[in-house]
């Protein structure tokens, strides 16, 4: 197994860690950070898998995808933070209420 797969596995574990944090933590800021960790994990997988082995130069397309992904992730985080502030202003809490019914 080359070091490429090591980085890819690291990316997948970041994704899983983020997913765990997203589910476990109630505080909204932690949830937003968890989503960011998850997307970092996905970006790491993309970049790591772009070089198939040590001799060949890495494929540039995944890098372009990661740059686009970072732009998307920044704007999503901005929207999430604004919404968090608005939720805080409306309910006085930084958590989502438990779902009463369903």
């Amino acid at each position: 197994m080359s070091y490429v797969y090591l980085y890819a596995l690291l990316g997948v574990s970041l994704f899983v860690l983020g997913l765990n944090a997203l589910i476990v933590h109630a505080h909204l800021l932690r949830k937003i950070l968890a989503v960011n960790v998850m997307s970092t994990g996905v970006f790491l997988v993309l970049v790591a898998l772009s070089s198939r082995n040590e001799e060949v130069l890495p494929d540039p397309v995944p890098h372009a995808m990661v740059i686009t992904g970072i732009v998307v992730s920044v704007s999503a985080t901005a929207l999430a933070l604004i919404l968090m502030l608005k939720v805080n202003r409306a309910t006085g809490k930084n958590e989502l209420p438990d779902r009463g019914r369903d």
């Binding site: 994704f15 998850m38 999430a80 919404l83 939720v87 309910t91 989502l96």
Partner: peptide, 21 residues
Amino acid sequence: ALTSAMRYLLISLLGSLFYLL
């Protein structure tokens, strides 16, 4: 409305990340 929007955003981002992986 704000809390359901927040929940919707988190779910939507989660779904997109699964898709991207």
